[in-house]
Design a protein around this nucleic acid. Structure first.
Length: 420
DNA sequence: TCTGGGGTCCTAGGACCC
DNA sequence: TCTGGGGTCCTAGGACCC
């Protein structure tokens, strides 16, 4: 089992098309340019924390030469897809775990596996431009730890295969890793474990499995077994369709009125429904919420949960249901900074044709399919629905002041190379 | 005085991940 | 002035059924 992940992925993507960022402290910001979500090594060395709110550190950071970029998910997504394709050439089994990580199966002697990992590293750097690190072990959890090691010890040059170590050396390594650093052990569980005298990855590995299970449940017991080298989390090659789709955003300027909520919900239900149709599903359940800032006094969230009479992918039906349920909850004296729509309980969209005779409104116009067809042919800006229509730059849309070009997906934003 | 027991389904929420 | 977004898995507890 090996995990390949890109170092400082978002920052590395920015650097491919802007080499001036090389060697400088760079951070990438979340939507709304809210907080730091990726840091270059140089930025980490300046002690810029993950998730630090940009508004509170920007003055000092820029004084130290830190360069900030708004997040450009179209660029990152495209470079991720290219990397996934390239890794696929080296393995028969691959699980795409996140935008910058894949678990892959590598076979052969430990020496051969390490050699293949080095080959992968070279290829991804040369053909895509991304620096990656590889961790290799008998379980996913140990592979993740190996991957960390490959980045912290320069001598390993980005590849760490735990098979190369003796049991004593392995224990030394695991003893040096805090239990909260282990994949699957979050802050809450780490605190409780420390209270039980379990401080390091080695402590957890050697703890009583029955006790861990009864106190923390099956998830943490699996982590323990994985630390012993037991493969409890198999590769999931076909992460089939999503089981939940959500669309939510924070606003740069709060909203307070039902009219604004209508605009937001119109956009969000359209976006969520489009993702649903993309994977060919219908949803039976929808949740919607509006909340005020969690960083202010009187933080509230209004959430509603509703079931459709028949599973649907129709944005009009979703919008009507959402505004009918959430609209009355809104309190005009509050400032809402975040709204979300999520869809659940899916079924394949071709499995319900027979139920159409029960449709409460047989004449209902299926707007979703029409929208998809027209925007696929003429572009996303040609047709919009209702209040969510085509008008852009509303007050509540998000801020992205420092966004880079989408250099691999838009002709008009291609990188320009100057010869000297 | 004294009110069963076993099971399924569903939902909300916690914890975690990147 | 200003603090992201999208997921997964598991469990507890309520509703309901016979």
């Amino acid at each position: 089992m090996a995990i390949v992940d890109a170092n400082n992925f978002y920052v590395s993507c920015e650097r491919i098309f802007n080499p001036k960022l090389e060697g400088k402290p760079v951070v990438v910001l979340s939507n709304n340019d809210g907080c730091v979500i990726a840091r270059s090594q140089e930025a980490k060395a300046l002690k810029i924390d993950m998730a630090a709110p940009w508004h509170s550190i920007s003055a000092e950071a820029t004084a130290h030469g830190v360069i900030a970029r708004s997040s450009n998910y179209e660029l990152y997504g495209d470079l991720s897809a290219r990397t996934v394709e390239l890794l696929g050439r080296y393995t028969s089994s691959q699980e795409v775990y996140s935008i910058d990580e894949s678990f892959i199966r590598l076979t052969g002697t430990p020496g051969e596996v390490t050699a293949t990992a080095r080959e992968i590293r070279t290829a991804v750097k040369k053909l895509i431009g991304l620096p990656v690190s590889v961790g290799i072990a008998t379980s996913k959890t140990l592979a993740k730890l190996a991957n960390r090691g490959s980045k912290t010890a320069p001598a390993l040059a980005g590849v760490c295969n735990l098979a190369a170590y003796s049991p004593e050396q392995l224990t030394t390594i695991l003893t040096s890793i805090e239990v909260g650093q282990v994949w699957g052990i979050g802050a809450r569980t780490a605190q409780k474990l420390i209270g039980m005298g379990i401080y390091s990855a080695a402590d957890l590995r050697d703890a009583d499995a029955v006790r861990v299970r009864s106190r923390f449940g099956v998830v943490q017991e699996r982590v323990l077994q994985e630390l012993r080298g037991l493969d409890c989390l198999p590769l999931e090659e076909l992460r089939a369709d999503k089981e939940q789709i959500q669309f939510s955003r924070s606003f740069s300027i709060p909203i307070s009125t039902v009219h604004e909520l209508r605009e937001v919900l119109s956009v969000y239900t359209q976006r969520a429904a489009a993702r649903l149709r993309e994977q060919g599903s219908l949803a039976r359940l929808m949740r919607c919420y509006a909340s005020t800032s969690p960083f202010k006094e009187d933080h509230v969230t209004h959430a509603v949960s509703l079931a459709f009479p028949n599973p649907t992918d129709d944005p009009v039906e979703m919008y009507r249901a959402a505004i009918a349920a959430l609209g009355p909850q809104l309190q005009s004296h509050r400032k809402y900074v975040r709204v979300g729509v999520s869809l659940h309980d899916f079924s394949p969209s071709d499995s319900h044709a027979a139920l159409d005779i029960f449709d409460t409104d047989p004449a209902a116009f299926k707007a979703g399919a029409v929208l998809d067809a027209i925007t696929a042919k003429y572009g996303a800006d040609t047709l919009g629905l209702g209040l969510g229509g085509l008008r852009t730059n509303r007050a509540w849309t998000m801020r992205r002041d420092m966004v880079s070009p989408r250099a691999t997906t838009h002709w008009s934003e291609l990188a320009t190379v100057h010869a000297r």
